[in-house]
Design a protein around this nucleic acid. Structure first.
Length: 963
RNA sequence: GCAGGGAUACCCGAGCUUGGUCAAAGGGGCGAGGCUUAGGACCUCGUGGUUAGUCCUUCGUCGGUUCAAAUCCGACUCCCUGCACCA
């Protein structure tokens, strides 16, 4: 019995040997082809989970293959540490957020370490080491660890400063006002579902309210709306009688609005000052002049006006706003309420909705329709939100403005919305206010508001030139997977306009060189780092000092500008070092593959490409992108109860590293999300063990040579090598691993089952097999490689070449044939339920074989052509005799012949002697079915055939009679 | 809102770009047998319905193109995903 596969010790053994060798520190070699791959580095956000290892593992498998295919491979790793994640992490510890510390402890973090992690820099430092040592090295990644860098390293920051000066020179940096979310204590905060900065409101959206100005005597009542195009349908004005509004001076106007709105606007306007107050109830019953339509409309009371939404004042468009209509209905039905404010009920009842928009699926007044449809009774009904959204959606997408909308008549709502807004802004009838769709609370507990940033810095990704050259490059030069992403990339590049690239808060990152008050934000400092990886080993080793990294250095290293002698004088870097750096860059660049998760599709990958296009010459632009999807838990995140939440090193122990690597490679193609399913992972682990045991059995093989079977095994290996190579070259890891880990194994089994036992051929096959496994499951491959007595690392051996094995198509075909016969016999046995004592096989008569040969001939020259076959056949006297049979058989023959349409196969088929082959295989079949097996020719006179089965024989499908 | 993806047999998942060789790869699960009777390990066969190896009906729904469609076209229904200063 073989020793059990001791994964932990085998893993440790080979990892030590690899990392003690120089595999991971490649040097440029003249004349040797190179391959440069990186994965989008992870943000330092704490412990990672097994899902993250999927894409990283792809990277290692691909680069291992390339290395074995004769490439010099550069595969650097790094960590993204700028932005607020490290800080957010520290703050979570300080605030003792539930669950946070538990996760740390579960991952083996002790109290003292947790205490130290209150410092964001320690977070970066600590987790960088975890990523390298506990994840990537533990998984056996032959990455170029010398390159490791994080985005807050001083050298990296010099690089980013250089990059931003380059962007500036290219005219891609500019400033303009911007409205962003911010906390009054902490400055700018990100509002997003991950809620790194905030404690509540992650799903809030930025909303733009158009502020409509209504004349009310000398003052202006300001109503906020999300639908400026509906001003044509205004019938009245809503105010909450129970709210105290404020008067505020804005420029030379006096506005009436809620105090909350005035507060919000104070962060968005330079000159707003609250000057007084006015009770809502005091305004009820007055009239205002509605903008655009210039109509006098009455002010009515309502309870739905929320002072914290918009301005707390609302213009009423009952045709298209469910709230407005139901509030009117409420008021009509409540004479007492009218009385209270001195309103004439009849006047209220006289208000008629004004149809302004035709939407698909709705009549004149969509709001009324939907209220009736949903059975909404009054303005307190919570479903009004839903109704509003529904109408908004229908109106926005399908609506067309009515004839009563002036110059906008007939215009689609999507267009009219902005046109009407712009017109009002231009004429001074309206203003704009930004708000969040729901309350957002900062981590510090303060409310998050929308704030005007008058001089926000942007990168102009809308630059026509950069956009166009990037699009063309994607189309003509880049290898992007999946193909759908390649197809949509040009549209994404077009869509990408300006992007805010720096912030004023207290974040980790590089100061904007043009204005050091700003810190460059984390997307914008991670677009060109594949270039920095080339020089980071020098900085890590101390042969280039951070202070020597001036712009001239980067210009020389990355652009080849300047002279090394002069540069050496100005920087103090030796000329040889400078020349080596430049040579490295020349050799390794461009990047061949940037591999990253699907979250990068709309932001990182496009800006990554466009920065290259803007700064580097075209022959240094990236050649490829591979996007990988995620691993999730059932119905969402990975979790303790459903598995997959354990620390990565624990998973590696439990499932073995090779098991996990095989799982990632084989479970699905890279372009779908995968649910972490522990049964599947265990199965992958089992496969590793199975291969271990099976390989040991194969090593014991000690039989005789059998030319047919040996050649068959070799031929199969040839096929597998050819197809695996093709799959790997196309980055189809699933296809390749399926072949290597399942099909090759099953071929070895078949070989043994048929009686193959040649130790030389077996060892030769195993030698290739192990090399093919190596990119996927390097640890077991190395161990088996060593046991087989091979020298050196399998990791640095040559991936099998197509010519290593003999290939004989006729033998491949013959084995397929015997399997078909076996399957047919099994089928009959299953149907009849009999236990055979004798099996008789009858090969097809000569005339059928002849006709079959004709069919193959015709097929070789083109497509199936029944007419020609019949014509040709009838010319032969022996065929003519049995013309009826011939025509019946011809249709079938052409169909079967289709199987041999392959040029090699049809030749083999023509020369194949079925009877002889079956006779040689009869002892095998006899063993399989445990009975006597006889082979006859169907046209042999007087053959034993009690049930007259032999007439059913076809070429490659012998007739079968079973007793 | 902008952009994109998918619906395949008990389950997961190939295949669809280049229509025929697709009843539809490969796993898992389940069933039968073997091997072992030490740890649910391993091997073989089966797993739409039928019949001596055939034939029939299937690849979200409806319709179309074609001698021929899971594969091409149109419509529909239902799921999912990314992005919006999060990386």
């Amino acid at each position: 019995m073989v020793d059990e596969f001791n994964a932990p010790s085998v893993e440790a053994k080979w990892q030590k040997r690899w990392f003690d060798s120089d595999i991971c520190s490649p040097e440029p070699e003249d004349g040797k082809k190179k391959f440069y791959l990186m994965f989008a580095y992870p943000g330092v956000s704490g412990y990672l989970h097994v899902g993250h290892m999927r894409g990283y593992t792809y990277s290692d498998v691909i680069t291992r293959y390339k290395r074995m295919d004769g490439y010099n491979v550069l595969f650097p790793v790094g960590a993204h540490s700028s932005g607020n994640i490290a800080q957010a992490f520290s703050r979570k510890i300080e605030r003792n957020i539930p669950g946070h510390i538990e996760i740390l402890k579960a991952n083996g973090c002790d109290d003292a370490q947790i205490e130290r992690l209150k410092d964001p820099l320690e977070v970066v430092n600590f987790f960088s080491h975890i990523y390298i040592n506990d994840y990537w090295k533990k998984f056996g990644f032959l990455a170029t660890y010398d390159c490791f860098t994080t985005t807050i390293d001083p050298g990296y920051q010099r690089f980013i400063e250089w990059q931003f000066r380059k962007l500036d020179k290219a005219g891609m940096l500019f400033q303009k006002p911007y409205f962003g979310s911010a906390c009054l204590n902490c400055g700018p905060v990100a509002v997003d579902a991950s809620e790194t900065d905030i404690s509540q409101g992650g799903s809030a959206e930025k909303q733009e309210f158009t502020l409509l100005k209504f004349k009310l005597g000398d003052e202006i009542a300001v109503a906020g709306t999300l639908r400026p195009e509906t001003v044509f349908g205004q019938t009245n004005f809503w105010i909450n009688p129970d709210v105290e509004y404020v008067k505020a001076r804005v420029g030379d106007e006096t506005w009436i609005l809620s105090s909350e709105a005035a507060q919000k606007l104070s962060f968005q306007k330079d000159d707003i000052e609250v000057t007084g107050r006015v009770a809502g109830r005091d305004l009820v019953g007055k009239t205002v002049i509605a903008p655009v339509v210039d109509r006098e409309i009455p002010i009515f009371p309502s309870s739905f006006c929320d002072p914290d939404v918009g301005t707390g004042l609302v213009t009423s468009v009952p045709s298209d706003a469910p709230y407005d209509w139901i509030a009117l209905v409420d008021l009509m039905n409540d004479p007492a309420e009218c009385e209270k404010y001195g309103l004439d009920v009849e006047m209220v009842k006289a208000i008629k909705p004004i149809p302004i928009i035709r939407s698909k699926g709705y009549g004149e007044n969509p709001a009324i329709e939907i209220i009736e449809k949903m059975g909404i009774q009054n303005q307190e009904d919570e479903r009004l939100e839903e109704a509003t959204k529904e109408i908004y959606k229908a109106g926005f997408h399908t609506g067309v403005m009515n004839d009563n909308c002036g110059e906008y008549a007939g215009m689609a709502v999507t267009l009219a919305k902005d046109k009407v807004k712009d017109m009002m802004l231009e004429k001074g009838l309206a203003d704009v206010m930004y708000d969040l769709s729901e309350p957002v609370i900062c981590r510090c507990g303060e409310k998050v508001i929308m704030k005007k940033i008058p001089d926000q810095w942007f990168i102009d990704y809308g630059d026509d030139n950069v956009t166009e050259i990037s699009k063309a490059f994607v189309r003509d030069e880049m290898n992007i997977l999946p193909p759908e992403y390649k197809d949509s990339m040009p549209a994404t590049l077009d869509w990408f306009k300006e992007r805010a690239c720096a912030r004023l808060g207290n974040w980790l990152g590089t100061k904007l060189p043009q204005d050091p008050r700003w810190i460059i934000e984390p997307i914008s400092d991670s677009t060109l780092y594949s270039a920095y990886y080339i020089i980071s080993p020098y900085i890590n080793a101390g042969s280039i000092k951070e202070e020597q990294l001036n712009d001239e250095f980067f210009d020389f290293a990355f652009l080849g500008e300047g002279e090394p002698d002069a540069l050496s004088t100005s920087t103090g870097i030796p000329v040889e070092t400078l020349e080596k750096v430049r040579n490295d860059f020349d050799y390794w660049y461009p990047l061949d593959i940037n591999l990253g998760g699907k979250e990068h599709m709309t932001v990182h990958f496009p800006v990554f490409l466009m920065n290259h296009a803007a700064i580097l010459p075209e022959n240094d632009w990236p050649r490829g992108i591979i996007v990988n999807w995620w691993i999730s838990g059932k119905g969402g995140k990975l979790s303790k109860s459903k598995g997959g939440a354990q620390p990565i090193p624990d998973a590696a122990r439990l499932f073995t590293v090779d098991g996990l690597r095989l799982y990632y490679s084989h479970i699905a193609n890279p372009f779908v999300d995968v649910e972490w399913d522990e049964a599947s992972v265990k199965n992958s682990r089992q496969i590793i063990k199975r291969i271990w045991n099976f390989a040991h059995e194969l090593m014991e093989v000690n039989g005789k040579a059998d030319n047919t079977l040996d050649t068959w095994l070799e031929s199969r290996m040839s096929t597998h090598i050819n197809d695996s190579r093709k799959a790997m070259d196309d980055f189809e890891l699933r296809e390749a691993s399926n072949r290597i880990f399942f099909e090759i194994m099953s071929d070895f089994r078949w070989y043994a089952r048929r009686g193959g036992a040649n130790p030389e051929v077996t060892k030769k096959g195993m030698n290739a097999w192990i090399r093919m496994m190596a990119p996927f499951t390097p640890h077991i491959a190395e161990e088996l490689w060593e046991k087989m007595g091979s020298q050196g690392f399998v990791s640095t051996s040559q991936f099998p070449e197509f010519g290593e094995f003999e290939i004989d198509n006729s033998i491949l075909m013959a084995e397929d044939f015997i399997r078909d016969v076996q399957a047919d016999i099994t089928g009959i046995l299953k149907m009849t339920g009999m236990t055979p004592t004798r099996i008789c096989l009858y090969t097809a008569p000569a005339w059928k074989n002849k006709l079959f040969g004709m069919g193959l001939d015709i097929l070789q020259n083109g497509r199936i052509d029944m007419g020609q076959l019949m014509k040709q056949a009838m010319a032969e006297p022996d065929m003519k005799q049995r013309s009826k049979e011939v025509s019946a058989f011809a249709g079938r023959i052409m169909k079967d012949a289709g199987k041999f349409s392959d040029a090699d196969k049809d030749k083999a088929a023509m020369d194949f002697d079925e009877a002889e082959f079956l006779r040689s295989a009869s002892s095998f079949l006899g063993k399989e079915f445990n009975c006597l097996v006889d082979v006859f020719l169907a046209d042999e006179p007087g053959v034993y055939d009690p049930q007259n089965k032999r007439n059913g024989a076809f070429p490659f499908k012998p007739a079968i009679y079973i007793e």
